[in-house]
């Protein structure tokens, strides 16, 4: 369609909507502000004990959605992940070197050089496999789809009620990293967990940014489908496995309040 046809389609639609406006029949007396009561709780700071309750609520919900949950410490999770990767033959990993989780895992792999583990960086150049000489620039779709066993990223926030992780897209948090590889491993701090979605959106500064990040993803488990005779199957299109590493950073809380 030409621009002028577009313009007139727009005008005609808006004109029909604007003229002769009836009000929608109101259904009884309804509270007009959505979630005021839910976001009230966010104003009060939680004790370490309360925060730990949220952690276990989130972990339970994730487990119920078929995700794998590991409780780890800030300094030892790269070792835990490398051990798991070796045991389960997840050889080629992809991360962004400047993302929190990617940086720590890169340092660990660089220092220890654990056998048979390869870590690719989702930035700059991608070295092609030995049988094809040369390099390509990321994002290389072929490499992403065929040569990566697992992606690693960091979740900025979590929601206890539904067992949900939040991923905000940015230059260091590419979108395909958590989607295309068959396994997605992700770190989340205990302290970043909120009780429900309304609270999470009210307290997290990212939701007040304008414009919002190009993409915000709420992840609540591995990809799944029940489209064949209501039988649940995992790994429909996205990751078949979701490995969540919950980092206990509540030490500073626990000394005072537990």
């Amino acid at each position: 369609m030409s621009d002028s046809e577009q313009q007139s389609a727009r005008e005609r639609i808006l004109d029909r909507l604007t003229t002769a406006q009836p009000e929608t029949a109101p259904a009884d007396n309804l509270p007009m502000t959505p979630s005021a009561s839910e976001s009230d709780s966010s104003a009060r700071p939680r004790s370490a004990k309360q925060q730990r309750q949220l952690v276990s609520q989130l972990a339970d919900a994730l487990l119920a959605s078929h995700a794998e949950v590991l409780h780890v410490r800030e300094d030892d999770w790269p070792h835990t992940l490398a051990t798991l990767a070796q045991a389960e033959q997840l050889r080629t990993w992809l991360c962004h070197p400047a993302c929190e989780a990617g940086r720590m895992f890169s340092t660990y792999i660089g220092d220890r050089q654990p056998g048979a583990l390869k870590l690719r960086h989702y930035s700059g150049e991608y070295p092609l496999p030995a049988d094809q000489a040369g390099t390509r620039q990321w994002p290389d779709k072929a490499a992403l789809f065929h040569n990566i066993d697992a992606g690693l990223s960091h979740a900025t926030a979590g929601i206890a009620d539904t067992g949900t992780l939040l991923l905000f897209s940015s230059p260091t948090q590419p979108r395909l990293l958590s989607l295309v590889p068959p396994v997605h491993a992700v770190t989340l701090r205990y302290s970043a967990i909120q009780s429900n979605m309304a609270e999470c959106m009210a307290t997290n500064a990212v939701f007040r940014q304008r414009p919002l990040p190009a993409n915000i993803i709420f992840v609540s488990g591995p990809s799944k489908t029940a489209d064949i005779q209501q039988t649940l199957a995992y790994g429909a299109h996205g990751p078949k496995r979701l490995i969540v590493m919950l980092i206990d950073d509540l030490a500073q809380f626990s000394s005072t309040s537990s």
Partner: peptide
């Protein structure tokens, strides 16, 4: 719809690929 408290993915799209973004 499906008797879930939340679906596996909730996807919020607010713009095309931004400067510096690697994909999208």
């Amino acid at each position: 719809a499906t008797g879930q408290k939340i679906t596996t993915y909730v996807n919020l799209i607010s713009s095309p690929r931004q400067p510096g973004d690697l994909d999208g």
